[in-house]
Design a protein around this nucleic acid. Structure first.
Length: 476
RNA sequence: GGCGCUAUCGUCUAACGGUUAGGACGGAGCCCUCUCAAGGCUUAAAUACGGGUUCGAUUCCCGUUAGCGCUACCA
C-alpha cells in the first residue's frame, strides 16, 4: 500500500522545486495505485502566512494536481509532543538545560575549528532525579535525542535514488526533539506524523538526505516502521546556488509560469525533465505518458540547473516545450484557456465558436505561450492592433497600397468569400498589374495583421472574414 | 572544520565494462516557401584531473579538485 506525502511549510509562495517534489510524489502515487497526501507543515508560527498557504493551493490547483488526504501539523501538536515524551520515557532522550546559544555567532558553531558539535557537556549524564528536580523547579530545557555513542553503531538505509547510505552514529549530534517552549521541532513533528499517517515512501529534496539518519533514529525509538526513502536532486540556479526568491526573483515561483501563459501540463512536463528521464529520448510527454513512465529508478543524482538569465528570464527549453504542447493540444480544450487570456486582455473570442476554434488552430503553430494569442494574435480578435515597422515597410513598397485598396474593392464584389476565391482574385489582380503575387500576399498580411510574420495570407483572409478584410485593406 | 552527496556538450539528459559517446533546447548554416521565432536537413559542442582493476573504462575502486547539502531550541 503506497502512501506518499508532500509537506510544504507555508513560509513563501509555491517554489518550483517544491512543485516538482509534489509532482514526483503524485506521479509515484498514481503510478502505483497509492494515496497522495498533502500535509501542511505550519508549526513555525513566526514565519507562516495565510498568503503563502493560499499560494501553495493556487499553485497546485493551477498545475491541476490533486490529493486524497490532507493534514495540518498545527492540529496535531499534541500528538508530536506525546511522541517526544514517549521517546524520553523509553530512555532515548534527555533534558538539556544548557541556555540557548547565540546562533549569529558563527565562531561558536559551524565553523569552529574545535571539531563537530555533538552534545552539550554534562547534560547526557544527568541523573533522572536531578533532571526531574531541575524541570520541576521550572528551569527551561530542550529535549534531545540520546544518539547511541561509542557503540560502533552504523545507521544505514537504501535510498531509492542515491542507493546504499550509511553513517556512523558517532557523527550524528544529539538533535532537539522539543524546544524550551515545549514545541516540537521539525524532525520530531515530521517523523511523528509520517509514522502516524503511515507514510510508506518519503520522496523529498536531497537537502534532507543527511537528516534521514536522524529520522531513522526517531522512527526506531517510536517503534514505527521505517518508510522507504527517495531523495530528489535539487533545482539550482545557473551559478549552482540553491534557488531563492531574494537572489533569483520570480523564476522560482510557479505563478510566474502561469502568468507567462504556460499550459499546466506542459510546465509539469518541463519540471519532470529536470532530474528525471524516461531514458528513451522522449521529451514531450502528456500527463498520461508521464504517469505510465515514471519511476524512481529514472531519477538521477546530480542537481539540475534551471537555465535562466537576464536576457532569458525563463528557461528556453520550458518555452520550447510549451510551444510543442500548444501545437498538439486538442483545440476544444485549448480554446477555453485562450478565451480566458483574451478576456484578461480585454478581448472577446470570435463568433461562432467553430470559427473561433478554427482561428485558434490556425494561428497557434507560431505561438509559444497562451499570452501570445492576446499579443501577437491581437489582430485576429480586435480592430486596434499595432503596426510593426517591418509591416509598414512592406506597405510602402510601391505600388502596394494602391493595389491593396483595389483588392479590397474586388473582394467586396466577390460573389462568394473563401480562401480559394480570394486567392484567385488576388492572383488575377497581380497578373493584370504586372506585379509579383508576393507583393500583394505579403502586403495583405501586413495590412491585415500589422505583422510580416504569421500564417498563410489566405488563411488570414479566412480567419478575419470579408468585412474586416475589406475594411483593413481599404484603409491602407 | 566534521559528516554526507554529486561530477557526460553552454543547459536538460542517454549509453548490461566493448557505441564514430546518442537525443533535446539554445547557437551556426542550408532547403522549402507568400512571410515566419513554423517545418525539413546539416553542423560545431562533453565523459573535471590523477592513479589503479581489466584484453578493454563515461561506466568499477582510490585519491585530488570543484560544487551542493547537513552540522540551530528553521523547516
Amino acid at each position: 500500500m503506497v502512501r506518499v506525502r508532500f509537506a510544504p511549510s507555508p513560509t513563501g509562495y509555491l517554489h518550483i522545486g517544491s512543485a516538482r517534489t509534489f509532482i514526483f510524489n503524485w506521479l509515484y502515487a498514481r503510478r502505483n495505485g497509492g494515496t497522495m497526501i498533502l500535509r501542511i507543515d505550519d508549526t513555525d508560527v513566526e514565519r507562516n502566512t495565510e498568503a503563502s498557504l493560499n499560494s501553495i493551493y493556487d499553485g497546485l490547483r493551477w498545475l491541476e494536481m490533486d490529493w486524497d488526504e490532507e493534514y495540518r501539523q498545527s492540529d496535531r501538536i499534541e500528538l508530536h509532543k506525546k511522541a517526544a515524551w514517549a521517546i524520553f520515557e523509553a530512555g532515548h532522550a534527555y533534558r538539556d538545560f544548557t541556555p540557548a546559544t547565540n546562533t549569529d555567532d558563527e565562531a561558536t558553531s559551524a565553523n569552529s575549528t574545535r571539531g563537530p558539535w555533538l552534545c552539550n557537556p554534562g547534560m547526557r549524564e544527568l541523573t533522572a532525579e536531578e533532571s526531574e528536580r531541575r524541570a520541576a523547579a521550572g528551569e527551561p530545557f530542550v529535549l534531545r535525542f540520546r544518539v547511541p555513542r561509542g557503540e560502533g553503531r552504523t545507521i544505514a538505509f537504501a535510498d531509492s535514488v542515491y542507493g546504499e547510505q550509511s553513517k556512523s552514529a558517532d557523527d550524528v549530534e544529539d538533535f532537539a526533539l522539543l524546544r524550551s517552549n515545549g514545541m516540537p521541532t521539525y524532525h520530531m513533528a515530521s517523523c511523528a506524523d509520517d509514522a502516524d499517517i503511515k507514510i510508506s515512501h518519503i520522496i523529498r529534496g536531497q537537502d534532507h538526505l543527511s537528516n534521514t539518519f536522524k529520522h531513522i533514529l526517531i522512527f526506531e525509538a517510536l517503534k514505527a516502521e521505517i518508510p522507504q526513502f527517495a531523495h530528489l536532486p535539487l533545482l539550482v540556479a545557473p551559478d549552482g546556488a540553491k534557488l531563492s526568491k531574494r537572489k533569483h526573483g520570480p523564476v522560482v515561483s510557479v505563478t510566474t509560469y502561469r502568468d507567462a501563459g504556460f499550459l499546466p501540463h506542459s510546465y509539469v512536463n518541463f519540471l519532470c525533465l529536470l532530474g528525471w528521464s524516461p531514458k528513451d529520448n522522449r521529451e514531450q510527454m502528456s500527463r498520461q505518458e508521464l504517469m505510465e513512465s515514471f519511476s524512481l529508478a529514472g531519477v538521477n543524482r546530480s542537481n539540475a540547473v534551471v537555465n535562466f538569465s537576464e536576457e532569458d528570464p525563463i528557461d528556453p527549453k520550458a518555452i520550447w516545450l510549451n510551444s510543442q504542447h500548444l501545437r498538439v493540444w486538442p483545440v476544444d480544450e485549448l480554446a477555453p484557456r485562450v478565451k480566458a487570456v483574451l478576456a484578461a486582455a480585454g478581448l472577446a473570442a470570435l463568433e461562432p465558436e467553430s470559427q473561433y476554434q478554427w482561428v485558434v488552430d490556425t494561428i497557434r503553430s507560431r505561438f509559444f505561450t497562451l499570452n501570445d494569442f492576446a499579443t501577437k494574435g491581437r489582430a485576429y480578435f480586435a480592430d486596434d492592433f499595432p503596426m510593426q515597422p517591418e509591416a509598414v515597410v512592406k506597405l510602402d513598397a510601391a505600388p502596394a497600397r494602391e493595389l491593396l485598396r483595389e483588392l479590397a474593392v474586388r473582394i467586396e464584389a466577390l460573389p462568394e468569400f473563401s480562401e480559394a476565391s480570394v486567392e484567385a482574385a488576388l492572383r488575377a489582380l497581380a497578373e493584370e498589374k504586372g506585379v509579383k503575387a508576393g507583393l500583394l500576399i505579403n502586403g495583405s498580411r501586413a495590412a491585415l495583421t500589422g505583422q510580416t510574420v504569421g500564417p498563410s495570407a489566405f488563411a488570414v483572409f479566412a480567419a478575419l472574414g470579408r468585412e474586416r478584410v475589406v475594411k483593413r485593406l481599404a484603409a491602407v
